[in-house]
Design a protein around this nucleic acid. Structure first.
Lengths: 126, 126
DNA sequence: CGCTTGGTGATAATTGATTCTCATTATCAG
DNA sequence: CTGATAATGAGAATCAATTATCACCAAGCG
């Protein structure tokens, strides 16, 4: 990736402005609002490049690879059971590493919450 | 699943005695120590039945479905970067639900730690 | 013990995600 | 502006996980 293209700009913008991590397919759908002819192959190619360049980070949520904007501090995720969206959460918890047995070395961790997002809670009331 | 078969016993025993959650393939390999002719199709069929009967629970770790024994209290997981094994951890953390925005409803959560397990830390010293 | 029928094992088929191929398009240095 | 070539888009190919198929086997009732 050496050239600046419309599709790649659209992809990065889409991820930057998302409420959380997106699947490649979600990136495709959303970025097509900016660049209608965008193809799925380009999404995969660009995501790979963007990961290399550290502009986005891959996150595995519920068995599917999602991509999150890299300019965020350490955070965790919330998956809505109804709409399936993945939201970035603001904080972390102290003591997380204490969960492992003393002989283990903890290098990273992730916390994923599941439930209903604000919008879907609202829907449920109707 | 109405009949008690050697293969299904072997599968349940394998999961019950594991150090943590296992992939279907790992279940196959380990259970073949008890029931050598066991086939992968039977593993999938039995796992599905065991999940229905609430004897085992599916857990998604690092993008792959693993199966954990259901007779355990709420707990979390540790994935070893080197050997790939998934270990059950004993505890949970308070305040986990506080990570979500107030308008969200949290129904479940999971915490996954990554790093080196005791055995692999030992290996690294050599 | 023998039969009925659910279970098994081997393998083919399916599925969804991701990557590859290749002809065409478009970026950007000169 | 123009050429070299990187990037794209569509669809084929790949790959791993999971499920379906079907002939054969065995649990367990009578």
């Amino acid at each position: 990736m050496q050239r600046k293209t419309r599709q790649r700009e659209a992809i990065l913008q889409t991820i930057r402005e998302a409420e959380g991590a997106l699947t490649p397919r979600a990136v495709l759908t959303r970025a097509q609002a900016i660049c209608p002819a965008l193809g799925i192959a380009t999404v995969y190619r660009s995501l790979k490049a963007l990961v290399n360049e550290k502009h986005v980070v891959p996150v595995n949520v519920a068995g599917v690879t999602h991509y999150d904007y890299a300019g965020l501090k350490h955070h965790h995720h919330f998956v809505c059971r109804v709409c399936g969206l993945v939201f970035d959460l603001a904080e972390c918890l102290p003591q997380v590493e204490k969960l492992a047995p003393p002989s283990f070395v903890v290098e990273a961790h992730e916390i994923t919450l599941h439930g209903l997002c604000g919008a879907c809670v609202g829907e449920a009331r109707h």
